[in-house]
Nucleic acid binder design. Structure first.
Length: 153
DNA sequence: GCCAACGTTGGC
DNA sequence: GCCAACGTTGGC
Protein backbone atom coordinates (compact mmCIF):
# COMPACT_ATOMS: atom_id res chain seq x y z
CA UNK A 1 0.00 0.00 0.00
CA UNK A 2 1.16 3.51 -0.79
CA UNK A 3 0.62 6.76 1.07
CA UNK A 4 -0.07 10.14 -0.46
CA UNK A 5 -0.84 13.73 0.27
CA UNK A 6 -3.29 15.61 -1.94
CA UNK A 7 -3.83 19.34 -1.80
CA UNK A 8 -7.00 21.24 -2.35
CA UNK A 9 -8.10 24.77 -1.68
CA UNK A 10 -10.95 24.51 0.80
CA UNK A 11 -12.78 27.31 -0.99
CA UNK A 12 -13.04 24.92 -3.91
CA UNK A 13 -13.44 21.63 -2.08
CA UNK A 14 -12.84 21.03 1.60
CA UNK A 15 -12.63 18.08 3.94
CA UNK A 16 -16.12 19.01 5.14
CA UNK A 17 -17.39 18.74 1.59
CA UNK A 18 -15.82 15.31 1.31
CA UNK A 19 -17.31 14.26 4.65
CA UNK A 20 -20.77 15.19 3.33
CA UNK A 21 -20.31 13.54 -0.03
CA UNK A 22 -18.32 10.55 1.21
CA UNK A 23 -16.87 10.03 -2.28
CA UNK A 24 -15.39 12.44 -4.79
CA UNK A 25 -13.68 12.14 -8.15
CA UNK A 26 -10.38 14.00 -7.78
CA UNK A 27 -10.60 15.86 -11.07
CA UNK A 28 -8.61 18.79 -12.35
CA UNK A 29 -5.04 17.55 -12.07
CA UNK A 30 -3.20 19.28 -14.92
CA UNK A 31 0.39 18.60 -14.06
CA UNK A 32 2.20 15.74 -15.75
CA UNK A 33 4.22 14.70 -12.74
CA UNK A 34 1.13 14.52 -10.56
CA UNK A 35 -0.75 12.70 -13.30
CA UNK A 36 1.99 10.16 -13.76
CA UNK A 37 2.02 9.33 -10.08
CA UNK A 38 -1.73 8.90 -10.11
CA UNK A 39 -1.66 6.85 -13.29
CA UNK A 40 1.33 4.67 -12.55
CA UNK A 41 1.60 4.33 -8.80
CA UNK A 42 -1.79 4.84 -7.17
CA UNK A 43 -3.63 1.73 -6.12
CA UNK A 44 -7.04 1.01 -4.71
CA UNK A 45 -6.69 1.07 -0.95
CA UNK A 46 -3.92 3.65 -0.83
CA UNK A 47 -4.24 6.07 2.07
CA UNK A 48 -4.20 9.82 1.52
CA UNK A 49 -3.79 12.91 3.65
CA UNK A 50 -6.18 15.69 2.66
CA UNK A 51 -4.29 19.00 2.76
CA UNK A 52 -5.85 22.44 2.70
CA UNK A 53 -3.75 24.84 0.67
CA UNK A 54 -3.88 28.57 0.01
CA UNK A 55 -5.41 29.41 3.37
CA UNK A 56 -4.20 31.30 6.42
CA UNK A 57 -2.99 28.15 8.14
CA UNK A 58 -2.34 25.46 5.54
CA UNK A 59 -2.04 21.87 6.68
CA UNK A 60 -3.43 18.36 6.91
CA UNK A 61 -7.08 18.15 7.85
CA UNK A 62 -8.19 14.61 7.11
CA UNK A 63 -7.67 11.12 5.80
CA UNK A 64 -9.13 9.48 2.75
CA UNK A 65 -8.70 6.36 0.69
CA UNK A 66 -8.29 5.71 -3.02
CA UNK A 67 -11.24 3.59 -4.13
CA UNK A 68 -10.85 3.48 -7.91
CA UNK A 69 -8.26 2.92 -10.53
CA UNK A 70 -7.26 5.98 -12.54
CA UNK A 71 -9.76 6.82 -15.27
CA UNK A 72 -10.12 9.74 -17.69
CA UNK A 73 -11.00 13.04 -16.06
CA UNK A 74 -14.27 14.05 -17.78
CA UNK A 75 -13.65 17.78 -17.38
CA UNK A 76 -10.88 17.65 -19.99
CA UNK A 77 -13.53 17.03 -22.66
CA UNK A 78 -15.94 19.77 -21.57
CA UNK A 79 -15.41 23.01 -23.53
CA UNK A 80 -17.29 24.99 -20.91
CA UNK A 81 -15.19 23.75 -18.05
CA UNK A 82 -12.16 25.59 -16.76
CA UNK A 83 -10.18 22.36 -16.97
CA UNK A 84 -11.04 21.78 -20.61
CA UNK A 85 -8.05 20.61 -22.65
CA UNK A 86 -8.54 21.02 -26.41
CA UNK A 87 -5.80 18.51 -27.09
CA UNK A 88 -7.51 15.73 -25.19
CA UNK A 89 -10.01 13.40 -26.85
CA UNK A 90 -11.99 10.46 -25.47
CA UNK A 91 -9.90 8.26 -27.76
CA UNK A 92 -6.68 9.80 -26.49
CA UNK A 93 -7.35 11.20 -23.03
CA UNK A 94 -4.54 13.16 -21.46
CA UNK A 95 -5.67 13.54 -17.85
CA UNK A 96 -6.87 11.04 -15.31
CA UNK A 97 -8.50 11.13 -11.93
CA UNK A 98 -9.24 8.69 -9.13
CA UNK A 99 -12.15 8.42 -6.76
CA UNK A 100 -11.42 8.97 -3.11
CA UNK A 101 -13.52 8.11 -0.09
CA UNK A 102 -13.73 9.99 3.18
CA UNK A 103 -12.21 8.21 6.16
CA UNK A 104 -12.11 10.85 8.88
CA UNK A 105 -11.08 14.34 9.87
CA UNK A 106 -7.83 14.54 11.73
CA UNK A 107 -8.37 15.37 15.40
CA UNK A 108 -7.01 18.80 14.64
CA UNK A 109 -5.28 20.75 11.92
CA UNK A 110 -1.72 19.50 11.53
CA UNK A 111 -0.21 22.67 10.14
CA UNK A 112 2.54 23.02 7.61
CA UNK A 113 4.45 24.98 10.20
CA UNK A 114 4.27 22.08 12.62
CA UNK A 115 5.44 19.62 9.97
CA UNK A 116 8.39 21.86 9.16
CA UNK A 117 9.42 21.94 12.79
CA UNK A 118 9.63 18.17 13.04
CA UNK A 119 13.19 17.04 12.47
CA UNK A 120 12.26 13.57 11.26
CA UNK A 121 10.17 14.77 8.32
CA UNK A 122 13.01 16.37 6.37
CA UNK A 123 12.53 14.11 3.36
CA UNK A 124 8.81 14.70 3.04
CA UNK A 125 8.29 16.05 -0.51
CA UNK A 126 5.78 18.59 0.82
CA UNK A 127 8.59 20.27 2.72
CA UNK A 128 11.12 20.31 -0.07
CA UNK A 129 11.88 23.69 -1.49
CA UNK A 130 9.55 24.91 -4.20
CA UNK A 131 7.45 21.78 -4.40
CA UNK A 132 4.07 22.85 -5.66
CA UNK A 133 2.76 19.47 -6.76
CA UNK A 134 -0.82 18.88 -5.74
CA UNK A 135 -0.26 15.15 -5.34
CA UNK A 136 2.79 13.95 -3.50
CA UNK A 137 3.96 10.63 -2.11
CA UNK A 138 4.40 10.20 1.64
CA UNK A 139 6.81 7.60 2.96
CA UNK A 140 5.40 5.01 5.34
CA UNK A 141 7.52 6.19 8.25
CA UNK A 142 6.54 9.81 7.57
CA UNK A 143 2.90 8.80 7.43
CA UNK A 144 3.19 7.14 10.83
CA UNK A 145 5.14 10.05 12.24
CA UNK A 146 2.46 12.51 11.18
CA UNK A 147 -0.20 10.39 12.86
CA UNK A 148 1.93 10.47 16.01
CA UNK A 149 2.06 14.25 15.77
CA UNK A 150 -1.71 14.31 15.47
CA UNK A 151 -2.08 12.30 18.66
CA UNK A 152 0.57 14.24 20.55
CA UNK A 153 -1.30 17.49 20.98
C1' DG B 1 -1.07 41.35 -2.61
C1' DC B 2 3.77 39.97 -3.14
C1' DC B 3 6.91 37.09 -5.16
C1' DA B 4 9.86 32.75 -5.47
C1' DA B 5 9.85 28.73 -7.82
C1' DC B 6 8.22 26.19 -10.89
C1' DG B 7 5.87 24.38 -15.42
C1' DT B 8 4.35 25.44 -20.09
C1' DT B 9 4.32 27.69 -24.47
C1' DG B 10 5.91 29.07 -28.73
C1' DG B 11 9.22 31.52 -31.75
C1' DC B 12 13.34 30.58 -33.79
C1' DG C 1 15.70 21.52 -29.07
C1' DC C 2 16.77 25.91 -26.83
C1' DC C 3 15.18 29.42 -23.97
C1' DA C 4 12.67 33.81 -23.02
C1' DA C 5 8.27 35.08 -21.80
C1' DC C 6 4.40 34.03 -19.56
C1' DG C 7 1.14 31.73 -16.33
C1' DT C 8 0.33 29.31 -11.99
C1' DT C 9 0.91 27.77 -7.35
C1' DG C 10 0.86 28.66 -2.79
C1' DG C 11 3.33 30.27 1.39
C1' DC C 12 3.90 34.41 3.59
Amino acid sequence: MNYWLMKCEPDVFSIDDLARQKVEGWYGIRNYQARNMMRDAMRIGDQVFFYHSNVKVPGIVGLMEVISKPYPDPTQFDPDHRYFDPKATPEQPRWVQVDVQYIRHTRRLISLEELKKDDSLGELPLLRRGNRLSIMPVGKSDWQRILELEAAN
